[in-house]
Simulated assay, not measured.
Amino acid sequence: MSDWIKWLLLGLLSIVFGIFVLGAPAVASIAVTVVTGILLLVSGALQVVGGFTVEGTGNKALSLIMGAVMLFLGWSFLDHPLQGTVTLATVCLILFMAGGIARVILSFQMKGTQYFWATLISGIMSIVLAIIIWRFAATDPAVLLQLLGILLGIEMLFNGLGLVFMAFFIKDAPKGETNEAKEA
């Protein structure tokens, strides 16, 4: 099977899963929370084990405290997945707002360059998205339960489309360019 067909199939699979996730965003949100909980538990355990091997009292204490916090968060997400989902969605909302504000501020440092408008619009769109989500969440908190799933589904669709386009690019590229694309 040629490389471009593998990329095409992977892209189509991502699109199908994206559609599936968008069909059940609350279920996908809880799945994201459970996976996050598992990853936090594993990371926390490794951090605690690593804390016993580092040199210095301050480094050891910091490593053990960080490991304990990750273990607590992981256990909390797994023990209460609905609350964990709302917490993760709220963190996403805060990150959208903070990232948007940061890009708006950054755009004014780029004033007079070709990047000004793109950065400004990107920042404003993130802020508007955060406000829209916040407004919907204020009237219906269940929106936060679906937010992570919706974001995951959209990302899977965009990722799938990108892989499909890349597959056709690889198919149509001269053989010299295909090897360079493989190396990158």
Rank of each mutant, 00 (worst) to 15 (best):
K60I: 05
M70G: 02
G99H: 04
T87V: 13
E177A: 09
T119W: 08
Q114D: 15
L62Q: 10
G149F: 02
S122N: 13
F17E: 09
K111V: 13
M97A: 14
T33S: 12
F20N: 14
L88D: 06
N59Q: 06
G23Y: 02
L41F: 01
V143R: 02
A98L: 05
G56T: 01
F108G: 05
G23A: 10
G44A: 01
F168M: 05
V164Y: 01
F96C: 08
L82Y: 13
G56E: 05
T33D: 04
L22C: 04
L9A: 08
L22K: 01
V104M: 11
K171Y: 03
M97S: 08
T53C: 11
L64V: 10
D79M: 15
P174R: 15
I30G: 02
A137D: 06
A137Y: 03
A28H: 02
I101S: 05
L161K: 07
L129I: 13
G149S: 07
P81G: 13
L88F: 07
Q114V: 03
G37E: 00
A45Q: 02
A45V: 01
G56F: 00
S122M: 14
Q83S: 15
L71V: 08
G37S: 01
I19G: 02
F108W: 11
P81N: 15
M156V: 04
W4K: 03
F108R: 12
L88A: 09
A167D: 07
Q109C: 11
Q114P: 09
T113G: 00
A167E: 00
G18Q: 10
T139Q: 14
V91I: 12
T139Y: 13
W4I: 00
F168N: 09
I19S: 06
I132Q: 10
L10D: 04
L148N: 06
L157K: 04
T57H: 12
A181P: 07
V32D: 02
V34N: 06
F136N: 02
F17A: 05
L22I: 08
T119V: 08
E55K: 12
G44F: 01
L12Y: 05
V42M: 03
K171S: 05
M166Y: 14
G100H: 02
S14H: 01
V69I: 09
G11D: 00
F168R: 06
P25E: 09
E177Y: 10
A142N: 15
L12H: 08
G176N: 12
G162D: 14
A102R: 10
L157T: 12
G67N: 03
K111T: 09
G99E: 04
E155F: 13
G162V: 13
L82D: 15
T178K: 00
L106F: 04
T85F: 06
F72I: 12
V35R: 09
W117Y: 15
K171G: 02
G162C: 02
I121R: 11
I38K: 05
M70A: 14
W134C: 09
G67A: 01
G149R: 00
A28M: 02
L78T: 13
L129R: 13
S63T: 00
A142S: 15
N59K: 05
V34G: 11
G51Q: 08
F77L: 15
I94N: 08
E55A: 06
S63W: 00
E155A: 14
E177F: 01
A45D: 03
A184C: 08
K175V: 11
W7T: 00
M1I: 06
I121A: 09
L10V: 02
I124Q: 06
V32W: 03
V27H: 05
T178R: 08
T53I: 10
V86Y: 06
Q146K: 08
